[in-house]
Simulated assay, not measured.
Amino acid sequence: MFTSRPTVRRRVLAAAGTAAALALALAACGSSNDGGSSMPGMDHGSKPSASSSAKASPSMGDMPGMDHMVAGNGLSDSKDGYRLTSEDATLTAGKQAAYRFAVTGPNGKPVTDFAVDQTKRMHFYAIRSDLTGFQHIHPTMAADGTWTADLDALTVGSWRLFASFTPDSGAGKGNGFVLSRTVTVPGTETTTPLPAAAEVDGYTVAVKGEPMAGMAHPMTVTVAKGGKPVTDLQPYLDTYAHLTAFHEGDTAFAHLHPTTKANGDHGGPELSFNAELPTAGNWRLFLQFQTGGKLHTAALTLKVG
């Protein structure tokens, strides 16, 4: 469900020494071992893939924790001959669902050869149109190239489903793609305004940096609990935190790439990311990090100028 991601251009930011700090309290919107939701409209998951035990491919980026860079916003189901296909257009509200899909290549046949990217061959995301629901899943693939993403129960409304992957052969080998499709969950929909950041489970996240639309910019995230810096973050997807962003209004996708190298179960309190958000406006950030064997998902609204 995403667009091809050739290497993203880096723009040099000139205003040295003027980086303003934006500290927004945000809390883990829940913690879970299997991705269950702990908050209405907020789902998050890390379901294991049968193929996830492979080691990272040598073609991965050369920065610690950096996966292939993605260009574009992921709002198309096709790019450079690659297409995200699925027969599922509607899903039932309030029930777990197995969403099945495939990626076809320029030859029209299902792709079955994918590179490992941040320990997985496929990253799959579900986001509700008002950005109040979120799931991050690692689906499993059958021999014929059919993927199955086991979604937790969805609330009524329109959802966009993203697939992030890198072909390991063929015309697109080594290029990152983010393709997406929409599904409808029938029923009476209520739109929820983006909630303010709130402390949950005692975790508070502060974001320092002032991203500008379309410009690469370093960003630092700090994690605290009970007012004390957190230093026991455990590796998750080969880094100490996974940060995904969606744009308010069109659900455009962005992955903020981690640059902090994971080394043992003592990450934090500061984590570095390379932020490049292409469009001005509100972005909903979902930070996933692990402590004590539990995965936490924290949500934050960040305004980009």
Rank of each mutant, 00 (worst) to 15 (best):
A56D: 15
S59P: 05
G61R: 03
P64W: 09
M66T: 05
D67V: 10
D67W: 02
V70C: 04
G72Y: 00
N73I: 07
L75M: 13
D77S: 14
S78T: 13
K79R: 07
D80N: 02
Y82C: 01
T85H: 06
E87G: 10
E87H: 08
E87C: 04
D88N: 06
D88Q: 13
T90L: 04
T90P: 03
T90D: 08
T92S: 11
A93D: 12
A93G: 10
Q96S: 14
Q96I: 03
A98Y: 06
A98C: 06
R100H: 09
R100A: 10
A102M: 09
V103G: 03
V103F: 09
P106E: 12
N107M: 01
G108K: 02
D113F: 00
D113C: 05
A115R: 02
A115Y: 01
V116M: 11
Q118N: 13
T119Q: 11
K120C: 02
R121G: 01
I127G: 03
I127T: 12
R128M: 05
D130R: 11
L131V: 06
G133M: 06
F134I: 04
Q135I: 08
Q135C: 07
H136P: 08
H136Q: 13
H136G: 13
I137A: 03
H138E: 05
P139Y: 02
M141H: 03
D144G: 12
G145C: 12
W147D: 00
